[in-house]
Amino acid sequence: MNTPAEPGGKGLNVREVTLSYGGAPIVREVSLDIPHRGFTMIIGPNGCGKSTLIKALARGLKPAGGRVLLHGRDLWTYRGKEAARHVALLPQTPVAPDGITVRDLVRRGRYPHHTLLRQWSPDDDTAIGFALDRTGLSDLADAQVNELSGGQRQRAWIAMVLAQQTNLLLLDEPTTFLDIAHQYELLELCRELHDEGKTIVAVLHDLNQAARFASHLVVMRRGQVVAEGPPAEVLTSGLVADVFGLACDIVPDPRTFTPMVVPHARFPASSSPGAA
């Protein structure tokens, strides 16, 4: 429990963290190192605690036990705005206030960069313009968020997170509501940001996309991390059967040669003959 702070520690390190919403623990004594400047994807079945864990990485939820270290220091010893200049989080189901426009929403991502008296700086316009541009929302900047389509709304939230201009970017199911072209566009955007030096952590349900884009895969089940490592090593048909209860073959993606999941025609796993 009393792991000393690692002075040279970079990025996010999870040390025996237990998380709960006041009742029974949802995530139990998980330890995890998020690779610095890596592209980490978290996968796992519904309700296994992915969102709960990713919230705890960005001060959205305070651990009931253990510690989250940011650059070697307990995340909760930072001042709120200071932490928010390092880590940004897109929650799974954010709620936009009534009547807010896309630009105003994106502008709220600048909050950690403001002070009491300086609630605007020239950097804001650059950051907001960049975020709107990268998410293809420049033309919709003055539209009301609650009157957008689901996918446009999701992109508005992503723009808000981008405007925060942090080195660590946490995204909880960022591709929900997006059509397939926009899904890949967003994942490519994440990869570009990653190439520019940012650390990305995303929760994703599409295992093939996760395997294609991630440099590091984290697999969760029932509040525990059950496997982690490079996608090619982690994603096996045994693991998919074990964690998701789905019988499948793993074949190389014909384009990228990353592992690709081809489910068997019938499931659950026990009734399928070919499970390895």
Binding site: K55, A58, R59, G60, L61, R79, G80, K81, E82, A83, A84, R85, V87, A88, L89, P91, P94, V95, A96, P97, R108, G109, Y111, P112, Q164
Partner: peptide, 15 residues
């Protein structure tokens, strides 16, 4: 104003 976006996001944004 930030709190309007829910407790979680307010915490994440440092409010």
């Amino acid at each position: 104003e930030i709190g309007e976006m829910g407790d979680e996001l307010a915490g994440v944004l440092g409010a």
